[in-house]
Amino acid sequence: MEPHLLCTGFRRAVVCNYNPAKRRILFHSRRGYATPTETSSGSQDPVRAAAPIRFSSNANQFAVNRAEFVDDAENSVGSRPGQSSRIPLLERIRILPASPSYFTGTPRFTDDFLALRALERKYQLLPTLPLAEAPRVAWKTLEQYRTELGEPVRLKRYSSLLTLLKKLNSIHPSLFPVEVERALARYKRVVQPHLNQPKPVVVDELGRARAVGRRKACHAEVYLVEGEGQCLINGKTLTEYFGRLHDRESAMWPLKATARLDKYNVWSTVRGGGTTGQAEAITLGLAKALLVHEPALKPALRKAGCVTRDIREKERKKPGRIKARKMPTWVKR
């Protein structure tokens, strides 16, 4: 009797020490959303999931009832050695999966999904921002999420998960619940590129706005000051630098498109590439510098095609070809 009691007490102590928080969450979540909360029939005991199996070096480990491992408060408080025999047989011998979604094929995903749905339902009455104004977040990609779970999550399912995430993310920041924030953190990528805000460019004390534009292999640094329409590129006038009228026009296009040619002076250094690329690099730099002076011109400049960087670059040459794509002339022999 005495050794048996001692042995059981010891085992209880071990079980209590074993990560009780995690166990409790598991227990609560199971209670919370997956299983019916009230036991409708008093005659039958509630069905409980079996605890995860922990293997140890003890050869006797499977001789004990598994139910004793369950970290149940009522169970552990007034436990007696004879009590185990009072737990119904079915519960003692039946092994239940830890997650009720065990048989869905993607149990962890389903759990995640249901958890997020529950959160959404819980906070559905909080005010939200329009989706476009919600803080931008880079969510994990499907591949990353699959690898993390180790489950074959389908794209469509993941999209619906993302929809939920975005909906939760659009809760008004002033009322954003800590619980949601914690839940969402799991789905965010480690590196958030949207947090990298460019430094705001300002007009300096001499009235200059500086901006950089690039195109093809060219790099243009443009300084814009208020003036009467003069332009110097690498110390030369526009006509000296660009022999072609088209290049001159495309370099000054942001000012011309917004009817500001006689309001500003341009001073620019440009390097690399050829004439067309240099002219268009100046276009981009000039548009950015103009936006520093007059941010309201952005729609007009976008319409004029001056805001977006043209990312096309020269395609590399490939072995076996004369240029990037060109094949050598076909010779019969």
Partner: peptide, 15 residues
């Protein structure tokens, strides 16, 4: 005025 100054600028300060 706008036309004159536009052409003046594009002509490299009125060359």
């Amino acid at each position: 005025d706008g036309f004159v100054s536009e052409k003046w600028s594009l002509a490299g300060h009125g060359v």
